[in-house]
Amino acid sequence: MRLSLATPPPELTALLDSGRLWRGQEAPRIAAEASGHARLDALLPGGGWPKAALSEVLHPQPGTGEMALVLPLLARLSQAEQHIAFVAPPLIPYAPGLAQGGVQLDYTLVVQTPNPAESLWASEQLLRSGQAAVLVWADAASPQGLRRLQLAAEESGGMVLLFRSLRRAAEPSPAALRLAVRREHGVPRVQVLKTRGHGGGHPRPVALGQ
């Protein structure tokens, strides 16, 4: 007798629904928050930033376009009265610019830490106390630190966006999503390096925007 999984048993359905198990032929069901950049969302499983997961944004230097990339997400979360935090940002997140981008400043928080290890620790604390999204700048994060962060995100249901330099692209990472931001002809473009459920990334970078 052949075992048919056309109608999977309830235990299996529960696993499939939770996104912890997926079938090879299908795109995994991944709970995600739309990034607000239509062309990027079209490339991402679930249609955006994965929830309850670690995502990495690799970029050559601050100001490349990484803030424009996350701005729609920050605006939407904060407008929904969800807390977002910037941990160890390299420059000052500028309140007038954020407000113009639709961010509700009352739901934002900046934490300045003495070193990358502390940044990861603080991010974990923030996630575990119910922060919806934590943006953390920690270029020199250890693989072990990243796994802890990924675990904290999984357990708390929050999102961590880790900002690192493009040089880290070659290093292995437990992140569910890895994006690279570069500028071409003065326009920021995003390339998907890795997503959960798809083997490789999408080689063609896409422009930010609706």
């Binding site: 000052i92 997140p93 500028y94 309140a95 007038p96 954020l98 407000a99 400043l105 009352d106 934002t108 928080l109 900046v110 934490v111 300045q112 830490t113 003495p114 502390e118 603080a122």
Partner: peptide, 12 residues
């Protein structure tokens, strides 16, 4: 852990 000046909210 970090001191009061190290935690703040961007404000206008």
């Amino acid at each position: 852990r970090y001191g009061e000046p190290c935690l703040w909210r961007p404000a206008l």
